[in-house]
Amino acid sequence: MNVYTAGSILIFLLGLYGLLAKRDLFKMVISLSVLDTGVNLFLVAVGYGSGGIAPILTDTYPLSVLHFVDPLPQALVLTSIVINLGVTAFALVLVARIFKKHGTLDTAKLWQKMGGEEE
């Protein structure tokens, strides 16, 4: 386990902490974003080989037998980032909707309100 994979797991854990500990919905969405960033970094770190070059054939690095970093996890991360963008965008609009409807983003108050509506 190298410093990159360890660091990305740390970021993931930070996001998880935020998700669990924060009471404000908006901060929870941001924590989710941090968590996702950690996972994406982990995927990229998995593909890394020490001394590797960016996986693009160019004038400077024209041969495919050179020591390239693994491009596949990067492709996966590309997709993952886009998906997370989609989720975050929708989540933020949802947060706005909840604020407009209930006037608060405090999860404690919201759960209380939900309890009232429910039974």
Binding site: P55, I56, L57, T58, D59, Y61, P62, L63, S64, V65, F68, P71, Q74, A75, L78
Partner: peptide
Amino acid sequence: PVIFGQSEGLEEGSANLV
């Protein structure tokens, strides 16, 4: 090996491997 600027008609033609 694939050579930038030379290899032609390969199964896949993008220089950006990602």
